[in-house]
């Protein structure tokens, strides 16, 4: 399997009121193509910061981040933006979208912006509709973002993250603002994407979500404290319950 993302000695330090706060400390991490990695850990452990640093949304203080063979620390802001646009997808806990655009337009916006995309506007729109159909929200494409439910909006965010067929999707608590049934639907969509070959890195607090991932990284105080290989999940309810149990036990051992 090819490596998609690798970090070497990644450090991130914030200076708050002249006080140094080392949020990430010497993180070495390798994520291969097709993996679905969950980042877990207590609040304030640095999970989201790690996600933002490896995705190029934030600059690292020290160390290397190599995404798809490119060292992101050496890229300009412009090149980093291009990388995020063409090769990465993002899903956030809050379903951030542009208020003045319809749901469909929000989804296709990155594709319209991408120079890699050679399709006509009409073709892009059709592809956006196909993605929406796949995620079961094709009936809300022309709606405003305040006219749809949270679950529908998060699935629209997944569509947006997929529109440029990224190498990797970064999801920060993608189900954090959703109820259980919406959460399950969203995770199933992410699983489905992963099965189709998209690498996913997902920050979560929820063992039920993490149980669907192939590997778990447990972070405490800015360092990876534990790592658990779970294997790909493609079974039913029973297997999921077994994986959850196994994960909960492991998490207990980590001090969860």
């Amino acid at each position: 399997m090819n490596t998609v993302l690798q970090t070497k000695g990644l450090c991130k330090t914030y200076i708050v009121n002249k006080r140094q706060n080392n949020v990430l400390k010497n993180i070495d991490l390798t994520i291969s193509e097709g993996e679905m990695v969950a980042i877990m850990g207590p609040s304030g452990s640095g999970k989201s910061t790690l996600l933002y640093c490896v995705s190029g949304m934030d600059r690292v203080t020290a160390g290397e981040v190599i995404f798809n063979g490119k060292e992101t620390a050496k890229l300009s802001d412009k090149a980093l933006s291009q990388l995020r646009l063409d090769e990465m997808g993002f899903i956030f806990q809050q379903m951030y979208m542009m208020k003045n655009l319809s749901v469909l337009d929000n989804i296709i916006l990155p594709a319209v912006k991408s120079k890699k995309n050679t399709e006509s506007r009409k073709q892009t729109e059709e592809r956006g509709r196909q993605l929406m159909r796949r995620l079961g929200i094709d009936d809300v494409g022309d709606n405003d973002i305040n006219e749809v439910s949270g679950g529908q909006l998060q699935r629209a965010c997944i569509c947006r993250s997929m529109i440029n067929s990224p190498k990797m999707i970064f999801a920060d608590e993608p189900t954090g603002a959703l109820n259980r049934s919406s959460s399950d639907e969203v995770m199933n969509e992410l699983l489905s994407l992963n099965r189709d070959g998209t690498t996913i890195m997902c920050v979560t607090h929820d063992p039920k979500v993490a149980a669907k991932c192939s590997r778990i990284l447990y972070i405490v105080d800015g360092g990876i404290m534990g790592e658990k290989e779970m294997g790909h999940f493609d079974g039913g309810e029973k297997e999921l319950r077994d994986r959850e149990r196994e994960l909960n036990n492991w998490l207990m051992e980590q001090g969860w």
Binding site: N100, L101, V112, K113, R121, E125, D144, N146
Partner: peptide, 26 residues
């Protein structure tokens, strides 16, 4: 700030049907 009740439709144009570049469209 949006209850979904008292706000009118905001999206007027359609990106898919527009020929404007993304920045101009926005």
């Amino acid at each position: 700030g949006q209850t979904g009740e008292r706000f009118g439709k905001r999206s007027v144009m359609h990106l898919g049907r527009s020929k404007l570049p993304a920045t101009g469209f926005m």
